[in-house]
Simulated assay, not measured.
Amino acid sequence: MATATADNAPVPPAPARPATLLLLVRHGQTPTTGSVLPGRAPGLHLSDRGREQAERVAERLAGLRVDALYSSPMERAQETAAPTAARTGLAVTNEEGLLECDFGGWTGSAISDLAALPEWQTVQHSPSQFRFPDGESFPEMQARIVGAMERARDAHAGGVVVCFSHADPIKAAVAHALGTPLDLFQRIYISPGSVSAISYTDGQDPAVLMVNSTAEPLSGLRPE
C-alpha cells in the first residue's frame, strides 16, 4: 500500500528486490567416485569424464548473468569451477563452508568396506546422530554449508551465485531449503557435475527450483 508525505502526495511502494539465485554444483567425476570416501585428502583430481562435466556446467550457464563464483578449496571442486570462471571472467572465491564433510578416520576408505560396518546403517538412516571418528557430524556439516550459502546470498542480494561443492553438503543444503529433516537427506541424490538451484526472496521461505539437473540449459532460471 502506498504511503503519503506531509502534503498528502502518495509515495509509491519500493519496488520488490529480485530473488537471489544460488546454484549448487557438485564437482565432476574423479577416478574414485563411488568407490572410495575421499573426504578432504588432498591430491584428488577430476577424471577425463569429470573435466567434460565441468565444461558442460559452463556451457549450461551460458545466457545466465552470473554475479559470483564460490568453491570448496578441494582440487576437484576448483577444477570443476575453472571452465565457468574462464567463460564468465569471474574469479573463484574459496569458501571453507563448501568443503566436503570431514570424514575423519574414515577418509580414504573403500565404500564397500564401510558399508559392512554397523555404523553405516546410522549414516544412512539416522545421520543426525552420527559423528565420523575424529571428524565432523552431519549437523555440523549442514550448518556449515547453510551458513556459507547465507553469506553468499547476502553478499550478492538479487544476483546469481554459483557454488561448487560436494555431494553430502549439497544434499544437506537442499534438505534444509526444503524443510526436510536431516535424517531423510540421504534420499536426495546428487550426481557428479549436477546443478541444484535455490531461490531466496525477502520475507519468504527458500524455493528449490531444481535438484540434480545434468541436462538442460540454465538460462531459463532467471529471465533477463
Rank of each mutant, 00 (worst) to 15 (best):
G193H: 04
V211A: 06
R187I: 06
D205I: 07
G158W: 06
L178C: 02
M210Y: 11
I188W: 04
D183P: 10
T201D: 08
Y189M: 13
P223N: 09
L209Y: 05
M210C: 14
Q186F: 08
D202Q: 13
G193R: 09
T214H: 09
R222V: 12
P206H: 05
Y200T: 03
L184T: 12
G220F: 11
G179W: 06
C163E: 13
V195Y: 04
M210S: 11
M210A: 14
P181H: 05
I190L: 04
V208D: 07
L218R: 07
N212Q: 08
E216M: 10
G159L: 09
F185I: 10
S194D: 06
V195S: 05
E216Y: 13
D183F: 08
S194I: 01
A207L: 14
L178D: 04
A167V: 10
V211Y: 03
S165M: 02
S165A: 12
L184S: 15
F185D: 13
F164L: 01
G159I: 05
P169G: 10
I170C: 01
S196K: 03
P181G: 04
C163G: 10
A172W: 06
V161C: 01
A167N: 10
S213H: 14
V162L: 07
A172V: 08
V160Y: 03
L221M: 09
V160G: 03
T201N: 08
P217G: 06
T214P: 10
L221A: 07
A215T: 15
P169T: 11
P217Y: 11
I170K: 00
N212R: 02
S213T: 12
D168K: 13
S194F: 01
V160H: 08
A175T: 06
V208P: 08
S213Q: 15
S219K: 15
A215H: 13
